[in-house]
Each structure stands twice: as structure tokens, then as C-alpha cells.
Design a protein around this nucleic acid. Structure first.
Length: 412
DNA sequence: TGTCCACTGGAAGGGAGGGCTT
DNA sequence: AAGCCCTCCCTTCCAGTGGACA
């Protein structure tokens, strides 16, 4: 054995010229097919440059429809232009998936506005009101217009309720020397229904809906990024096409399309091939599916796992479109085998709905006349994934043996 | 036309557990 | 430690329902 083990791979010619072009955080210089949405944001935010308060906004759209990237793009330009004006513009962006309590959101914004000599606000410990007061005084000290972006704001409301949004949309009545406007970004179109009507009317003074990209639009985006990020001439005919089509099926998610293309190229690279073909895209597709489903499956609560397990088991035995009753009976059996108390059918019916929302099963209500009304349930987990062993593998309460045994018996 | 099946899904309430105040 | 409140998960109860069939 000679040489360093990294050398072989390190020296290998990469098919990428710039991986960053496929990064989720990458900010392109052009945003094709989002002109309309961009325009909406610009028309509203231009008020900030005139020293007026822009309306609060809510941006809606499926994941990967460009909400965050468009907002960032507009805000960068706004800040730049703001430097030339008398009244400065400050922006802060918070991702509410990571920062998901009232305290932490306010603390984060206030910390961004800190100046040298300000005493730091602790991560925890202060009453939330005091943090809010600090934020207000810092905003006033800075003056101008503050734009606060709350990305994935539906997360925040799920976990912390609308108290924060109430305070934030109320800031302008407390600020003396500055103004503030809120931009909420949400994947969920019905998100405002969870809010207090007073909050929702103040927050969604102006709504912009980001429509999902259609396949041809995704194609354009991919072509552009491919030019930036990967070598010329290595993509075989139809690769971009397929990536775009697959992502368009997934509700027009451009991010997914970029992931697909990136992983396809990686797959080719790993195999030391110089061309990326359709088969690499297929590989990438199943890799993505696997990565998406596995963590969800593994972290499902016990009873939800058992319900899903019952569905998968029936399907393994060739039964599709099974009814709630069938699922429940299998589920009760499974519970007995591993000696735990089954939940009621009412509860299981709710669990089925939850699994449906998670996208792990497909359920639809059907009536079979005298046969009664029920749900038709099918697993939505890609066939390539062995859901049953994934579920038992991670479950300490049901040890693999008991599930395995049951599986064996039901096959006989 | 009415019946009736096998559920669905809303409403209300119990109780365990976590966090906060006293 | 005690008391309180809130949230989550779950149960119980039950009215409501789409459509095949008598």
C-alpha cells in the first residue's frame, strides 16, 4: 500500500465546477419565472425607501417555490438602496423552524441590532417583556425602517401560538423614532385560520401567493444552474428533462429538482463515469425518497408505527385498498402479539388521518353502499423501501423478534 | 323510496406530565 | 412541596353519511 488513502479520490477530476450553485442557500443573480412575485414585493417595500411603513405581508407557496430566495434577493437590493437614502433600512431574517419561541425570536432580532457596549441578552432568563422592551429601544435608537422576515412562520404559531405575532404587529404603536414591517413566509395556505382574527388582519395586509413552478420553468432553472455548477457536455439527453418532470410532479419543487440533478451527478462521479444519464437520475430519485421517508418512519410513535405496520403487512400479502376496519383488526392482532393494549378504533381513525397528512399513506373516503362507509387505505411508501424492517429496527419497545415472528406467522 | 351498513369525525371530558408560581 | 394551569393523548358517546340493495 502506497500513498495516502485520500489521494485517489482527491486527485479525481470532479464533474462539478462549482458545487455551490446547487446549495440551498445559493443566491442566484437572476430569478426566472418569479417576476410577478418579485414585483409584488418590490412595490410594497419601496415605501421603506420613502420613509413610509410598508404593509405587513404574508407570502404563501409550496416548498421550493422560491419564497425565501426571492425575499432575500429583494431585501439585499433594498438594503443597498437604503444606504443611499436618509432613512436607513434594516432587515432581519429569522427561520422559525430553528428559532421557535417568542423569547428567542425577539432576542435574536434585538441581538442583531446590538451595538458595541450593549450588554448581551441571555439565551434565557429575562422576562419576555423585558427583551421586547430592549428590542424596541434598540430599534428606536437605530431609527429608520425595520423589515422583519419570519420564514416558516407556521411553525412558530404551531408551537408558540400567536402571542409573538400579536406583539410584533403591534410594534409600530410603541416605536417612536422608527417603523417596522413584518413579512411572514408560510408553506401552509390555511395558516391564518389558526390566528386570532386581529393578528391575521394586521399581518396579511398584503398577500402574495407563489405558484408552483411548472416543468418547463424548472427546466430553465436547471439549465442555468448546470451552466454555473457542472462541466459542459456531461449531461446526456433527457437528464434535465427528467429531473424537471419528477420535481414538477412533486408540486413543482425547484429545490428538489436541484437536489436531483446534484445527486445524479454525484452518483455518476462515485462510479467514476464521465457522463450523467437517465439511470443516475433514477438512482438519485430513490436516494432522495429514502432520505425523506426513513427519518419520519423511524421516529413515528409506537401506535402509529403499528398502524402503518398493519397496512404494510396487508399489502405484502397482496391486499390493496383495505378498509379502516381491516387495518384496525390487523392492528389489534399485532398489539396482542407484542402484548400491549390496543387503542380504540376512534383513535386509530385519527392516526390514519395523521399518517395521511404525513404522506406515508393514501386514504380516501368511500362508500360501499350497504357495505358501509369507510376509508380506503394504501401505503404511499416507495416500494424500494422496506418499511417493515425500518420500523422494527428503530423500535426498542417492539423488539425485532416479536415483529419478525408475527410477520412470519401471518405469511403462513 | 327507505333502510341499513360500517364507518367518519365532532364534542366533551379524563388523566398524565411538564412548567410555573407560591 | 404544593397548587395551579396548560397541553397532549386518549376514550366515550353519538349524530351523520353515501350509496347499494330490498
Amino acid at each position: 500500500m502506497e500513498g495516502n488513502i485520500f489521494e485517489k479520490i482527491l486527485g479525481q477530476d470532479s464533474l462539478f465546477t462549482d458545487r455551490k450553485a446547487f446549495d440551498h442557500a445559493f443566491e442566484p443573480s437572476r430569478l426566472p419565472h418569479r417576476e410577478h412575485e418579485l414585483d409584488g414585493l418590490v412595490r410594497n417595500l419601496v415605501d421603506a425607501l420613502n420613509g413610509h411603513i410598508p404593509s405587513n405581508m404574508l407570502l404563501y407557496g409550496v416548498p421550493g417555490s422560491g419564497k425565501t430566495v426571492v425575499t432575500r434577493y429583494v431585501l439585499r437590493q433594498l438594503e443597498e438602496k437604503g444606504k443611499e437614502m436618509v432613512k436607513p433600512v434594516y432587515t432581519s431574517e429569522i427561520n422559525c423552524r430553528n428559532v421557535d419561541t417568542k423569547y428567542r425570536v425577539v432576542q435574536t432580532i434585538a441581538t442583531q441590532l446590538a451595538k458595541r457596549g450593549d450588554s448581551p441578552i441571555p439565551f434565557t432568563g429575562w422576562p419576555t417583556d423585558r427583551v421586547l422592551e430592549t428590542l424596541i429601544s434598540r430599534m428606536d435608537r437605530a431609527g429608520g425602517v425595520h423589515i422583519i422576515v419570519l420564514d416558516e412562520v407556521d411553525n412558530l404559531v404551531d408551537k408558540a401560538g400567536d402571542a409573538l405575532l400579536y406583539s410584533l404587529t403591534n410594534l409600530n404603536t410603541l416605536l417612536k423614532n422608527s417603523r417596522c414591517s413584518i413579512i411572514g413566509i408560510s408553506n401552509d395556505l390555511n395558516f391564518t385560520q389558526q390566528l386570532d382574527p386581529r393578528v391575521s388582519s394586521r399581518l396579511s395586509q398584503e398577500d402574495i401567493v407563489f405558484h408552483p413552478y411548472i416543468a418547463s420553468e424548472i427546466e430553465n432553472i436547471l439549465v442555468e444552474r448546470a451552466k454555473m455548477g457542472i462541466k459542459e457536455q456531461i449531461l446526456e439527453e433527457g437528464v434535465i428533462n427528467l429531473c424537471a418532470a419528477l420535481a414538477a410532479q412533486e408540486h413543482g419543487d425547484a429545490r428538489r429538482a436541484l437536489d436531483l440533478l446534484r445527486i445524479s451527478v454525484q452518483k455518476a462521479e462515485q462510479r467514476a463515469q464521465t457522463k450523467v444519464g437517465i439511470k443516475h437520475v433514477r438512482l438519485a430519485q430513490s436516494q432522495l425518497e429514502y432520505d425523506q421517508v426513513t427519518p419520519v418512519l423511524k421516529t413515528l410513535p409506537l401506535h402509529q408505527k403499528l398502524v402503518l405496520f398493519s397496512i404494510c403487512l396487508n399489502e405484502e400479502n397482496g391486499l390493496r385498498n383495505i378498509s379502516t376496519g381491516d387495518v384496525y383488526r390487523t392492528y389489534v392482532d399485532a398489539c396482542k402479539k407484542i402484548e400491549i393494549e390496543p387503542l380504540t378504533s376512534r383513535r386509530v381513525s385519527s392516526l390514519l388521518n395523521e399518517l395521511d397528512t404525513l404522506g406515508l399513506i393514501m386514504a380516501k373516503n368511500v362508500s360501499k353502499g350497504r357495505g358501509g362507509r369507510s376509508k380506503q387505505v394504501n401505503s404511499a411508501i416507495p416500494k424500494a423501501i422496506d418499511a417493515i424492517s425500518l420500523m422494527s429496527e428503530s423500535e426498542t419497545l417492539i423488539d425485532e423478534a416479536s415483529l419478525g415472528k408475527y410477520r412470519l406467522q401471518s405469511h403462513l
